[in-house]
């Protein structure tokens, strides 16, 4: 089972690289879908089957479809070279991020070590258990997200509709 984690971890990283470095938005979107799918498999391995399915259904199956549709609709093509002077952030950003990555890696390594297994007593992560927790301890965030979704619907209509 562990080997699957490493396989899909590598898949995720390669696909993420492809998200960042592809010049055609559709390829980036497809790579992102691969990342999402690989992460869904990893969630399965980590004992979160429900979240894995939600990830595929909502993230890969709905959110990314929206991305692909918008890309198709706007016919977003190849990204050309930057027409403007090289931005400051583009030169400073990546080295900073690399430093951040190394730093973070070292700290995580120190804290949890090479072998600190990511395991607790096996949990019941079935949809029923998640639902129970959701509707008992997290009922407020759950209800409040409905306002969030309402705002999103409202916003999509307000911003994208040609004539109200």
């Amino acid at each position: 089972m562990e080997i699957l984690f490493y396989i899909f971890g590598v898949v995720a990283i390669v696909a993420a690289l492809s998200v960042v470095f592809q010049r055609t938005p559709v390829y980036s979107a497809l790579s992102l879908i691969v990342v999402l799918a690989a992460l869904a498999v990893i969630y399965l391995l980590l004992g979160a089957p429900f979240i894995a399915m939600v990830q595929v259904i909502v993230y890969a199956g709905a959110i990314m479809v929206l991305f692909v549709l918008v890309i198709m609709l706007l016919n977003a093509g190849h990204e050309g070279p930057s027409a403007h002077r090289a931005k400051f952030a583009r030169w400073v950003g990546p080295p900073l991020l690399l430093a951040f990555l190394v730093e973070f890696g070292v700290i995580v390594w120190k804290q949890y070590g090479l072998t600190g297994a990511a395991s607790a007593p096996a949990l019941d992560a079935s949809p029923a258990a998640i639902g129970r927790l959701l509707f008992k301890s997290y009922i407020l965030p759950f209800e409040v997200t409905s306002i969030l979704i309402l705002v999103a619907v409202l916003g999509a209509v307000v911003l994208a509709k040609k004539q109200l």
Partner: peptide, 23 residues
């Protein structure tokens, strides 16, 4: 144990083939 969700997950990915074929 999440069999039905799996079916929905896979069907929801079916959209891509249609969208991408068209594009």
């Amino acid at each position: 144990n999440v069999g039905l969700l799996f079916v929905f997950a896979v069907t929801s990915l079916g959209v891509y083939s249609v969208a991408l074929a068209g594009w």
